[in-house]
Amino acid sequence: MIEIKNLTVDLGSFLLKDINLKVEKGEYFIILGPTGAGKTILLESIAGLYPIKSGEIWLDGREVTALEPEKRGIGFVYQDYVLFPHLSVKDNLIFGLRQRGRPKEEMQRVTEWLAELLGITHLLERRPDTLSGGERQKVALARALSVSPGVLLVDEPLSALDPQTREGMQQELRRVHQRLKATIIHVTHDFEEAIALGDRIAVLNEGRIVQVGTPEDIFRHPNSEFVARFSMTHNIFAGEVHQSSDGNTIFAIDDSEFEVVTELRGRLHASIRPEDILVSKEPLISSARNSLKGTITSISDHGSTIHLTVSTPLDFVCIVTRRSFDELNIEKGVEVYITFKASSVHIF
């Protein structure tokens, strides 16, 4: 368990102020904040790599505020991996153990275990500069885990990866977390990443923690504009993906369900962009797989576009142009149909 009390860090241009966080053992904790919010520095401060102005850091009941980084037992993974370029993958993995003077057998055992855990056995003799981004990230993760840190800090681990690798790495992180029951603090500016991975999320805005809660708390009841704007424009739902008897992939939430396209299964999230939803008064005959009947519960005017909330009873935000809105001739309380393609739903 790691506890951060009243942490204040001077970033030069602004302050990270009164940061209070308590992360339970084995928890996957996300710090979510816009770019430039000082997230990396916050992690460096926790690890003892950046001087703090005031505050305390407690790790498993022991105060580590004054300890040097090498004595804290806090692992760190940087956004762009930062592997030792002069060492092979294997020597990167055992770097920590070697500095601690551990026996050869232990280094061998740990190397094999980590290589197997992350599927990098075939890379052990390679140099970092010959690896792809995803491979580097796995090596960086393995290296941080090699010294069994009490807490693992990961800084934007997915944002330097291409979209396909990103999805794989996201599952890798979740798998590692579940298998090792590791305590992880992961900072990101990516809302979907936060929702997909986090047991809990802390929202960092303008140097302060403005909200802490489960992903559902955060996107249902956002109290920062940064989060609110995101949840407004993404129609996020938490539910379950399963295969229906007729072979379709279904996202089910309470009594509603709709078709989606994904290989993932289990408790997941779905998002649909408001501009991908068609609104009509009569059911549409089209190739789109999902058509739901609902009631308009709110209408807000944004100039050239109108935002409608349609309750099916799930609340969908839909964006229509002013012209479509006039042609539809609708108002609050009217029944409409919303239609969207299965491929417009993003599952994460």
Binding site: E44, A47, G48, L49, E68, P69, E70, R72, I74, G75, F76, Y78, V82, F84, P85, H86, F95, G96, Q99, R100, R143, A144, S146, V147, P149
Partner: peptide, 27 residues
């Protein structure tokens, strides 16, 4: 030499001296 290489070395348990001789100097 990227300063973060030295920082990572510290989090892995290397003292400032070890970090200098194993990371900064070789690089």
């Amino acid at each position: 030499v990227d300063e973060r290489l030295e920082k990572v070395a510290r989090t892995l348990g290397a003292s400032p001296w070890q970090t200098f001789f194993r990371v900064s100097l070789p690089l």
